[in-house]
Amino acid sequence: MQKKIIEIVEKIDTSQVFTELSDAQSGGICVFVGTVREFTQGEEVVSLEFETYQKMALKEMDKIASDAIQKWNLNKVIIRHAVGLKKVAEPVVAVGASSAHRDACFEACRYLIDTLKETVPIWKKEMFENKTIWVSAHP
């Protein structure tokens, strides 16, 4: 099975992730799932919409995965992000790693999500009752 799984999908099935990261050389698997939160700064979010520059996003996600594999000597890595319209509590991103010992996959997991948020060209629009906002667009 491949070492890296890098995907942009319509819908995330979180039940797949364990099997995908499962590995005989690994003593631990760490997964982070990002979901749609109902309230942002006290305002009720109706839904979120994600859009991407897919070709570049896959390249950037692949770089993050490769860097993490090298840095923490991981056995498997997954970075999967959803696009399109997402409702409250739905998963929008799943990242994870498996490694011989737990320290490596815990640290790698945080690196995967933190770096994704900084560099991968994916944009989130928050839809409220009366307005929509592109997150982080303005100071």
Binding site: G34, F50, T52, Y53, M56, A57, H81, V92, V93, I113, L116, K117, E118, T119, V120, P121, I122, W123, K124, W134, V135, S136, A137
Partner: peptide, 10 residues
């Protein structure tokens, strides 16, 4: 060529 406004994935 593409314009990349501040990203906000995750």
């Amino acid at each position: 060529i593409a314009i990349i406004p501040p990203v906000s994935g995750g």
